[in-house]
Design a protein around this nucleic acid. Structure first.
Lengths: 102, 102
DNA sequence: TGTCAACCTCGACGCATGTCAAAATCAGCT
DNA sequence: AGCTGATTTTGACATGCGTCGAGGTTGACA
């Protein structure tokens, strides 16, 4: 009887992060940001990679920001995004733990 | 310039799985299923663990099923759910890869 | 001060989602 | 056949989400 129900607080914290990754556009944005050379990438390099309007990309980036998956910093005219690996590691760890019983 | 945009097909396949995990209830359901003793667990053991109606739990289980995260099998009057670790490993691997540049 | 480019916010539009009660299905039992 | 319990489906409702165009803010530069 090891039905380990995840703690409600943990679930409430991690679920929004999974949710933020649950959109193909945001998943691709996240992969571009996380694998960017120098650890960061400008919005002006992200936007033209998609057939979507600027506001829509901005909205998705805000979602990733609010989920705690990325950080943004303005320098001069450009805004640079970088990944926050701590949270990503938590997500990966949770999936691995779920996996352990098999 | 390693802005590795995830392939659109991959993103379209994996995003729904992340999306399915993007709800606290489903995340807890998933943890109970994945860590269940014997690798499987009955719906009748899942439902009372939440302050939600039976139909609502059934709906969330269907979402997990359609995302490819779990399998269901009916035996006698009861339906048993078990995790599909292959997909979970893909998700974990993607997060780890994103992480590698840091 | 004015102008331009980059980026974000606002308001609106359809569509998807979480939830429930009610009804349907399924399997065992009498 | 009929009853009972377990699970899913259906129909409905309110809320949330992805998208866009229009407008606003910020910073550089002349």
């Amino acid at each position: 009887m090891t039905q380990q129900k995840l703690d409600g607080t943990v679930a409430g914290t991690l679920a929004p992060a999974f949710k933020a990754l649950g959109d193909p556009v945001r998943l691709q944005l996240m992969s571009m940001i996380a694998s960017a050379d120098g650890g960061e990438i400008c919005v002006c390099d992200l936007t033209p990679a998609f057939a979507l309007s600027g506001p829509t990309i901005s909205h998705h980036l805000k979602t990733l920001r609010e989920a705690g998956l990325v950080d943004a910093e303005r320098r001069a005219s450009w805004v640079y995004y970088r990944a926050r690996p701590v949270l990503m590691r938590q997500l990966a760890a949770l999936l691995a733990v779920d996996d352990s019983g098999e």
